[in-house]
């Protein structure tokens, strides 16, 4: 039998959990939208020369990536430093080129990615933004 104290504690945990889930919920309607803002004719808000302050808030809206092996690792490691748009804006590349790029992120920019993780990320990139023939020239791509 659970005691009254245990029951109260249990109820308390459930309520706390519900609050945490509610606060942490991802409400799509609350996400900033980049593309759906109406066009504005005179959009400039110049910083005032009179003011001692200038402050901006950057919009942010990462694209969706398709499911597949390596996706979660790719999201976790790459977004530490940059937006996923760095990948979506690239043309399709061979696995060889993607391997060079990931190696550059690790060796040159010191990204915290292990060799094993890198292989998984490269495979994912080669799946979602790859070329047909591994290592072939990209010149046929426009």
């Amino acid at each position: 039998m659970i005691t009254r104290k245990q029951l109260l504690a249990l109820v308390g945990f459930v309520i706390l959990g519900a609050i945490i889930i509610w606060i942490g919920r991802d409400d799509p309607s609350q996400r900033p939208k980049i593309e759906e803002q109406p066009p504005v004719q005179t959009p400039v808000t110049q910083p005032s020369t009179q003011s001692d302050f200038n402050q901006i808030t950057l919009p942010h809206d990462d694209p969706e990536f398709p499911p597949g092996p390596g996706r979660e690792l790719f999201l976790a490691r790459c977004t530490v430093c940059h937006s996923l748009r760095y990948i979506t804006m690239q043309p399709n590349f061979s696995k060889k080129v993607w391997a060079k790029e990931v190696a550059k992120m690790i060796n040159t920019y010191k990204a915290h990615i292990t060799g094993e993780e890198a292989r998984e990320i490269i495979n994912y990139l080669a799946t979602v933004k790859g070329t047909d023939q591994d290592g072939a020239s990209n010149s046929k791509l426009k």
């Binding site: 696995k95 060889k96 391997a99 060079k100 990931v102 190696a103 690790i106 060796n107 060799g115 890198a118 292989r119 490269i122 495979n123």
Partner: peptide, 9 residues
């Protein structure tokens, strides 16, 4: 890490 080494699972 060498890119070549990263390509082969």
């Amino acid at each position: 890490l060498k890119p070549e080494e990263l390509q082969d699972p």
